[in-house]
Amino acid sequence: MSEFQVYLQIGFDHISDLNAYDHIVFIIALCAAYPLNRWRSVLLLVTAFTIGHSITLALATMRVILVPSDLVETLILLTILATCLMNVYRPFEGKIGRKTSYGLALFFGLIHGLGFSNYLRALLGMEESIIVPLLSFNIGLELGQLMIVGLFTVAAFVFLRVLGTPHRQWNLFVSGAAAGVSAMLLLGAG
């Protein structure tokens, strides 16, 4: 097995691990607000999120920034809660609103990247090049993320197209569930 494959696998397993579901819940909350015909917006959002977490993943793994894990984990939960509330109350509408959403997804990505990196950094040490581990871990995260978006889209298709659920109801259902999960985790009941 090559170094690339090892860290690709770890990245993929990390984001798709059902035991570490905070990222999964966040991605689902991010997608919930968009009907199927707005898949381009979903792609842009996920890309913005990816850019965000790639930046902090790199910076924090190289120890340019250091934020304690406990604080990062709390912040990650707050990003889920914020995303869910925005799905429900839709404070940003129209063209400018969309761009604000992308900016926020990027900002939230910055926070999630800190979460990924705290673990990676702890394990990598400083003795050798971290470029390959960092890159392959990140690509693994992306692949895992795309899989989650894909699976969620299938579920959304079933509810929205097959069962004919109105999108607003679907959005409220998913966002409510995600908000509940993050609230319980914030209260330390996870």
């Binding site: 035991n19 406990d70 604080l71 979460g115 996870g190």
Partner: peptide, 29 residues
């Protein structure tokens, strides 16, 4: 933040509520 080497101890970190280590597990050595 320290740029190189071990980071300084940052004191109590649970600023915004209880930590939720269980939600974000990463089981690798």
């Amino acid at each position: 933040a320290s740029v190189l080497g071990p980071a300084p101890v940052l004191g109590p970190v649970s600023v915004l509520g209880p930590a939720t280590a269980q939600a974000h597990v990463f089981y690798v050595s």
